[in-house]
């Protein structure tokens, strides 16, 4: 039975269709496995090789991966919530109540979205503290630290813009206070508040603007920056694991950029003929 399954599976993986999608072909050599990562648009931002230590819990506590997990939960639940939510002034609050009391699984999805948002903020901060106290921001990873700080800001802005959308008292006053804080910026403060709200009051314009920022602008920015963030992990020599002893040679244990480059060169040479 198992042999038969293997036979069918082999037939599929050897088929022209399969090979047109997954070009690395059958085989289990290091080169093949490297190619599988390298020739896949989703996987190629990952390193082709990782050290076993990098995957251990104590290397990173998986805080970055968990943050990505909450982000994916938020994208999924948020998209589903959008099917029932109108960003217009009397309707938004009613839709939120409908999601709570009328729509099947609406309560679950809304709560999942809310709790994942809280979790993401906590995890992003935990990730940042972990990176900071391990010293993982040091060269050659300083640019990725900067990307991470921007991602922290994007996360907080996502959290803040989502705050207004239920259109309840808490939302209204939180955004009133928040945008008044922005107004204290010297010179441009009042203009920033005006542009953010699309007016002088927290009103229909403000709801629509926050909705567009929350559902389109900021998520796109986050996806783009997350892609750069992951790509840089690979380019900067993989996850930072330190070397376990305190002689100051932190980078001795991470794969050098040349070894990664060498792997790529070999793979490309094989691909060419």
């Amino acid at each position: 039975m198992a042999g038969k399954l293997d036979f069918y599976f082999d037939n599929i993986t050897k088929s022209r269709l399969w090979r047109s999608i997954f070009r690395s072909g059958p085989g289990d050599s290091s080169l093949h496995r490297a190619q599988k990562i390298q020739q896949n648009v989703f996987l190629h931002i990952l390193p082709t090789k990782v050290r076993r230590r990098m995957l251990r819990l104590d290397a990173t506590w998986y805080l970055g991966t968990l943050t990505l997990g909450t982000f994916l939960v938020l994208v999924t639940t948020g998209t589903l919530l959008m099917f029932y939510y109108h960003p217009s002034v009397p309707q938004a609050y009613a839709d939120m109540k409908d999601l709570r009391y009328v729509v099947s699984a609406g309560l679950f999805l809304r709560n999942l979205h809310r709790w994942s948002a809280h979790a993401m903020v906590v995890l992003v901060f935990a990730h940042m503290f972990r990176v900071f106290y391990r010293g993982a921001y040091r060269p050659p990873r300083e640019f990725n630290w900067v990307i991470g700080v921007i991602l922290l800001l994007v996360t907080l802005l996502l959290s803040y813009t989502g705050y207004l959308l239920p259109w309840d008292q808490l939302a209204f006053w939180a955004i009133t206070v928040g945008t008044n804080i922005a107004k204290y910026v010297p010179l441009v403060g009042p203009k920033i508040r005006f542009l953010l709200l699309g007016g002088d009051l927290v009103n229909a314009n403000a709801l629509l603007r926050f909705y567009v920022l929350h559902c389109v602008v900021l998520p796109l920015a986050a996806v783009l920056l997350i892609a750069v963030h992951f790509w840089r992990i690979r380019k900067d020599g993989g996850l930072y694991v330190g070397n376990g002893n305190s002689d100051g040679r932190q980078h001795a244990d991470t794969p050098s950029q040349t070894s990664v480059a060498k792997g790529v060169a070999v793979a490309e040479a094989v691909e060419k003929p």
Partner: peptide
Amino acid sequence: YMSPNVLYE
């Protein structure tokens, strides 16, 4: 464009 000229307030 982002700065409204007429406000319905």
